[in-house]
Design a protein around this nucleic acid. Structure first.
Length: 565
DNA sequence: AGACGATGTGTCC
DNA sequence: TGGACACCCTCGTC
């Protein structure tokens, strides 16, 4: 076409690296014919001798000559791929669909040869389920063993209940992104939220208006919270400021249980940050771990550290998660940046004394025992895989299952953590936010995924067209069919209800969306117009009108990749 | 509307 | 071992 002849008339741009190579760019350029490209080509000035498109000594010489002559060489990068910087294709959004760079391995499963869009773990091949080698090689004794070990866990999977409708929300509630959530252990309607600034939110989501943010407890990231088992009016919080605080929820008054930076800022090599935390009520112990690989035990009665810090992960690496077994609280599961999750016996803790080391290929964001029997383990790693071990007393050398799931974005977002549904009697349902977006009816949304960890199947993808931000923090209620989500600075409560019921409830009580903070543009599309500090919008069921239809082809996909044995 | 920057991890030298 | 730099679809602010 005209555009092409024009292109031919201008010298080809040669970028100064030899990677702009070979045949691929030539062929692909012919396919691509946006009008703007030709225009932009006019910006490109390259020496005449570069016409053959090959980089060689001659060309380098000529470039040198040009440099000496101070002739400006401008190279427009507008029509190169922003991912690989090569010509002939463009990565990025086309409408609400993100097109991947074909030169990179799949961003979802990390394997070369295809892109995220065509990844077998994303696209349904047969009724949405990838045939997996589910050969059952378990022996009879295994079943006897399992029944003894998990006597109270039903073997028959009940229907999963998915909280999939936004019931109420506080938009821009926190001043920084939300990092952790916790439901009150006895008061069903209270949600606690921590943020990157160290602030603690207390919200009664049934009364909706009753909300507080305590701002003076920590000076930076609130990483984990646990309730005091002997007084549910107080909460322990571990923060990147190096302290564990004990907070009175009524007053917001707090005192530090432990401060690892008593002398203040002594440079990054000395600043200790606390990440993982859990509690052993029977021993009145708070366990916390820091960014240098050490575990600390704090006595809740004396509020004093007991014993020395113990190196539980690679020296200098962050320990991001601690979880005590619900049945055997002395059995501790830790995980961190050294690519391991480790099982420990708290009664005989010393460096290198772990009972098992569960190897991962990248950083482990979280590791949890199953909530009722404590006999399974679920980990989230930054290699885009969830791993499940079905028995802690079985073979732990490799996971029973690896489930490919998009959650690897680690910077600028709170790390994704897959968590068990505490109410699921079969201990198989888990929830985790998804990083990668999907095109739902023209909107790019990041769903919250419910995954059956016993099969790898995606049970539900929950989203609302008004929530366009990623939702990395999700907590299922310990007793009610309710889920809390933290997305950026906002909190959402989801309920499991039939949509008519939601509508009915909303008509009775419409004011369930609270808008806080500045009213500038935001990705959360709830509201629109708002006023100063805090205002209330009708939950106008914009979301209902916009309610997205699931894409037919992907309505039941599986992320299962590998099943052992 | 577009630019910028706060940020963590991996890889290279 | 440590510094420099590269990063995929962020998100809020100016």
């Amino acid at each position: 076409m005209a555009q092409r002849t024009r292109r031919m008339a201008f010298p080809r741009v040669v970028i100064e690296s030899d990677t702009d190579s070979e045949s691929s760019s030539e062929e692909e350029e012919e396919d691509e014919a946006p009008g703007a490209v030709a225009e932009e080509d006019e910006e490109e000035e390259v020496s005449d001798k570069a016409n053959d498109g090959k980089m060689g000594g001659k060309l380098m010489d000529s470039l040198d000559v040009k440099k000496k002559q101070k002739a400006p060489i401008t190279i427009s990068l507008k029509n190169v791929c922003k991912v690989c910087k090569q010509k002939g294709h463009q990565a990025g959004f086309q409408g609400a669909t993100y097109v991947d760079c074909p030169m990179k391995p799949c961003f979802l499963c990390k394997m070369p040869g295809h892109t995220t869009m065509t990844c077998p773990h994303r696209v349904a091949v047969e009724h949405g389920v990838i045939p997996a080698p589910c050969k059952n090689t378990r022996k009879l004794l295994d079943y006897v063993f399992e029944r003894q070990l998990r006597a109270d866990v039903t073997m028959i999977k009940p229907a999963f209940v998915i909280p999939d409708q936004v019931d109420c929300a506080v938009i821009r509630y926190h001043s920084r992104r939300i990092t952790c959530l916790e439901f009150h252990p006895t008061n069903n309607n209270i949600l606690l939220s921590g943020d990157k600034k160290g602030q603690l939110g207390v919200w009664d989501y049934v009364k909706v208006y009753e909300k507080t943010v305590y701002g003076n407890i920590h000076s930076c990231i609130l990483n984990n919270m646990r309730f005091n088992p002997s007084n549910d009016g107080t909460l322990y919080a571990a923060s990147s400021d190096g302290t564990v605080s004990c907070v009175d929820l009524e007053t917001g008054m707090s005192f530090p249980l432990m401060d690892l930076n008593p002398n203040g800022w002594q440079g990054p090599a000395n600043w200790r940050m606390l990440y993982g935390m859990d509690i052993i009520p029977e021993k009145s112990l708070v366990l916390v771990a820091d960014n240098f690989g050490y575990l600390y035990l704090v006595d809740m009665r004396s509020n004093k550290k007991t014993g020395d810090a113990i190196l539980i992960h690679k020296k200098g690496s962050k320990v991001v998660g601690l979880h005590c077994n619900p049945v055997q609280p002395e059995i501790l599961l830790s995980c961190g940046n050294d690519h391991f999750a480790r099982i420990w016996d708290v009664r005989q803790l010393e460096a290198g004394s772990s009972l098992y080391d569960l190897r991962h290929s990248r950083v482990v964001n979280s590791a949890y025992f199953s909530p009722q029997s404590g006999s399974k383990i679920l980990t989230t790693a930054q290699d885009n895989r969830l791993r499940v071990w079905d028995y802690i007393l079985g073979d732990l050398d490799s996971p029973s299952r690896e489930i490919v799931h998009s959650h690897d974005f680690n910077r600028h977002l709170t790390p994704f953590r897959a968590e068990w549904d505490p109410k699921d009697p079969s201990e198989s349902l888990a929830v985790i936010g998804r990083y990668i977006s999907e095109n739902y009816n023209g909107a790019a949304l990041h769903p919250i995924d419910f995954i059956d960890t016993s099969t790898g199947q995606l049970v539900a993808e929950v989203m609302d067209p008004n929530i366009t931000t990623i939702t990395p923090v999700n907590k299922l209620h310990p007793r009610d069919d309710v889920m809390a989500s933290g997305s950026s600075r906002s909190l959402f409560i989801w309920k499991a209800m039939k949509s008519e019921l939601v509508q009915e409830v909303d008509e009775k009580n419409q004011k369930k969306i609270i808008l806080c903070g500045k009213a500038d543009k935001t990705n959360n599309k709830f509201g629109g117009e708002t006023h100063d500090d805090s205002d209330v919008d009708t939950f106008s069921r914009k979301s209902k009108n916009l309610k997205c239809e699931k894409r037919e082809s992907k309505s039941s996909r599986s992320y299962l990749t590998k099943r052992k044995r």
